[in-house]
Amino acid sequence: MSKRTEPPAAGDFDPVPVRPRVDGWTPERQTGFIEALAATGNVEAAAKAVGMGTTSAYMLRARPDAASFREAWGIALDCAVQRLADAALDRAINGVATPIFYKGEQIGERRHFDEKLTMFILRLRDPKRFGKWREDRVPSFHQDGAAMLLQVAMNRVENDAHDMEAGVTPPRHKPLPELRLITLEQEEAVTILRGEHLAAIQRRREYERCYAAD
């Protein structure tokens, strides 16, 4: 039996088989709950969005035959955590607007920047310069690694868009290598990126020739 290579989407699961009740956890309510949970990260809000209660949601999750529902629940929370991380990064970069009042009227605003949040994000995202490392581990970064990784990701987006525009299903890509913490496998990862980047350039040239011919 082959292992799943990619996690399922938040709404991609087998609904728990329940008795057909108009006011019960129908398949539509189950999938709607998972989608709302991924969007909000709040169980109570997700349950309310489908007209159900928080307690009944946890009861459904606890059922022995609800394995797929539990898995989708966890993935939905992962999606919500990513939204939270994006929001935290935005606050660290752009700050939070604080209104300034004078005699009961707002006359402006100032930007408050949370330096602790900024340092926390820097230590995680740029550990080479800001992280705290164990004595037996030294981080090593390829100077062009981040730029190359971004370029390959952009190549994938562009090529997939061309495929969809032409009515072709885009290929399933392998996960890109993590370049935040590069160890002895650094050069191998960079080589893979370079190879994929060159292949993407070749594909783009083929698209351009096809469009030029039309």
Rank of each mutant, 00 (worst) to 15 (best):
R63K: 14
D65I: 00
D65Q: 07
A67K: 09
S68V: 01
W73V: 00
D78F: 07
D78G: 09
D78W: 04
C79P: 00
V81R: 15
A85E: 13
A85H: 10
A87N: 09
L89M: 10
L89N: 09
L89C: 08
L89W: 07
R91E: 10
R91Q: 09
A92Q: 01
A92Y: 01
I93R: 14
N94I: 00
N94W: 06
G95S: 02
V96W: 00
I100R: 08
F101Y: 14
K103R: 15
K103I: 04
E105H: 13
Q106Y: 01
E109L: 01
E109H: 08
R110A: 09
R110S: 08
R110G: 06
R110V: 15
H112C: 04
H112K: 10
H112S: 11
F113C: 00
F113H: 12
E115G: 02
K116P: 00
L117V: 06
L117T: 05
F120H: 09
I121A: 10
I121W: 07
L122K: 11
R123W: 03
L124C: 05
D126G: 00
D126E: 14
P127F: 03
P127R: 02
K128Q: 15
K128R: 13
F130M: 05
G131Q: 07
W133D: 01
W133Y: 05
W133A: 04
E135I: 09
V138P: 00
V138H: 11
V138K: 14
V138R: 13
P139Q: 05
F141N: 12
F141W: 10
F141H: 11
H142M: 02
H142V: 01
H142E: 06
Q143P: 13
G145T: 05
A146Q: 12
A146C: 02
A146F: 13
A147H: 04
A147P: 00
M148S: 06
L149K: 04
L149H: 14
V152D: 04
M154L: 15
M154C: 11
R156V: 03
V157F: 11
V157R: 14
V157P: 00
N159D: 15
A161T: 09
A161G: 01
A161L: 08
A161E: 07
H162M: 07
D163Y: 07
E165L: 14
A166W: 09
A166C: 11
G167H: 08
G167Y: 08
P171L: 03
P171A: 04
P171H: 03
R172M: 10
R172F: 01
H173Y: 14
H173D: 09
H173Q: 10
K174F: 08
K174E: 15
K174L: 15
K174Y: 07
L176E: 02
P177T: 02
E178P: 00
E178G: 14
L179I: 15
L179D: 01
L179V: 13
